[in-house]
Design a protein around this nucleic acid. Sequence first.
DNA 1: CGACATATTGAGATCCATCAACCAATGTGG
DNA 2: CCACATTGGTTGATGGATCTCAATATGTCG
Lengths: 189, 189
Amino acid sequence: MQSYLEKINQYISGLDKETIAALEQISDIKTYKKGDLLLKQNEVSSKSYHILSGIARKFFIHNDKEITTELYFEQDLAFSFESYTLQTPSKEYIEALTDVKVSVIHYHAFQDAKQKFPKLTTLDLMLVEYYSIWLENRLFQFHTQSATEKYLDIVTKSPHLIQQLPLTIIASYLNISLETLSRIRAKIS
Amino acid sequence: MQSYLEKINQYISGLDKETIAALEQISDIKTYKKGDLLLKQNEVSSKSYHILSGIARKFFIHNDKEITTELYFEQDLAFSFESYTLQTPSKEYIEALTDVKVSVIHYHAFQDAKQKFPKLTTLDLMLVEYYSIWLENRLFQFHTQSATEKYLDIVTKSPHLIQQLPLTIIASYLNISLETLSRIRAKIS
DNA sequence: CGACATATTGAGATCCATCAACCAATGTGG
DNA sequence: CCACATTGGTTGATGGATCTCAATATGTCG
């Protein structure tokens, strides 16, 4: 997986100048404040946000409970996949968890660019493949791991999550209650 | 989602003869008997199986328990996504649940074909997008639904599952125990 | 300081898994 | 074609993981 990200980055580095120029031309730098919503529920996700700095999350509300589906750090690509791909209303919100700086590309601009620069289709494919594998692994987690195991997993594999995010968000990302998470932490240390 | 499948099928219908011929040239019809393994754990998933008839499933074993991750019916595409994409050993098995007839395409043959027929890259992208959305929705299920809700969901949305598969498989697909599923069914009817 | 968000801890309830016994249908070898 | 094994499903008893509700503590910021 790590190496697949490298492969993607290599692919980007190897793009011709025209393709890169086309990408830059349709990109737009924006900033958001902590707490701002980059995408609201029922809105169509018509832009992709490449995180340049800061942290964001994607979440939805079910039975008055917030469930975090993805956390975004520097270099990540944020958007609601289903909404973006089908151009239908989003079930999810995207929220800035800190002040955030992003590079924005509009859906339609990117679709057009793919027509003119076929290498962007290949890039798109690689990115979606990467996301699919990530999704598969997350499903695998929910299929096999207990609350404690899920927590230990991010402690070892993604310690930056724990250092930079409130437990409320972590719990909602692991789909366990804040209380359970608190108890797990007490027992472990 | 339904309509996205239609869009994909339309795209295939609209392909030029050369592209279609190239696809057919690298396809191979094969049959498997009920119980046969189309892919074994630790094997690299080097072929995709387009199901022409019959039923198959993908599963892995965790703590001596089989967990079914996907069910394949006519027209579905069967392979272990991560293993196929990264060409690394598969965590999962693919098993024929009935006698099965498939059209097989080798990974490398398809990669080559994409080089020569760029429309296949677009097709590949659409298929992976479809799979990502499917994965997102499955994750959504596991995040939000109880055992009973998951069961009712397939009763209403995929009744053919219940008609054609033993409860053991259904339970393992919903990630609940066979006993729990049996009790849910008893309570409902 | 006061107010609001964040985290901890306790008690009780709930969902579901596990273990075990049992039943029904199917099929196979002698 | 019977006897018995195998597969698939049901039902009961029990326990564990985790949720919910509620009270309390800690932290942070205007």
